[in-house]
Amino acid sequence: MSSSWAVLEKDLRLLWRHRTGWLSALTFATISVLTYSFAFDLVTAEVKPLLPGVLWVTFLFAGTIACSRSFADEVEQGTFDALLLAPVPRTALYVGKVLANCVALLAVEVAVMLLATILFNVPLLTPALVLSVAVGTVGYVSLTTLLSTLGAHVRAREVLLPVLSLPLLVPLLIAGVRSTSAALDMPNGDAPWTLLLVVFAIWSILGSALLFPLAVER
């Protein structure tokens, strides 16, 4: 347990010292929301129905940017091999990275939701919405972090990660958009979308925690 904590502490410190990853994700998310607001403003005055889609597409792309280099720096510096040699369960290495990425992305998402509240004049920081966004974040961050391990080994990883992760994340995208619509009092069908988000989050974190040690084994 203390070793897992040490790993998490290491990852949070790395997150703070290595700000380029999540800062570029934040910059991208801001520009993305601004671009959407320019684009839709010309088309329709009623932007509220478009908001859930705008938010979730921005989150997923920002997540891809923030997670893509999760392990790349450690692999390049050679510290990843040292971590694998350390007497720490490998699942802990993964969980530490996922938690650090979650912290970074939740910060980005809160910033995006604040910005969208101002730009689209719709109050977004409600408990129901924050809950669905938080659960969704755990879902996509855990899967994208697992897939980013692959990136450290191939050429053209910046292109490869979204190509790999986005088809897998389609259920999460649909469920996220629908549950966000529900939180904004819009018609969303009668399926239990938040439950699907929870199921996806549990599935992806359990599956990834089981598969990560197998993937990095030498």
């Binding site: 697992l146 391990t149 692959l150 084994e217």
Partner: peptide, 30 residues
């Protein structure tokens, strides 16, 4: 010949296969 890349790809193939039921459920509701 990269065994590590083969392992990663195997992990991806497993995740993709297990994702199919969730995809089917979500798009059926959709």
């Amino acid at each position: 010949l990269d065994e590590q890349a083969a392992r990663y790809s195997a992990v991806y193939a497993i995740v993709a296969y297990l994702d199919v039921p969730i995809i089917q459920m979500s798009v059926r509701w959709w």
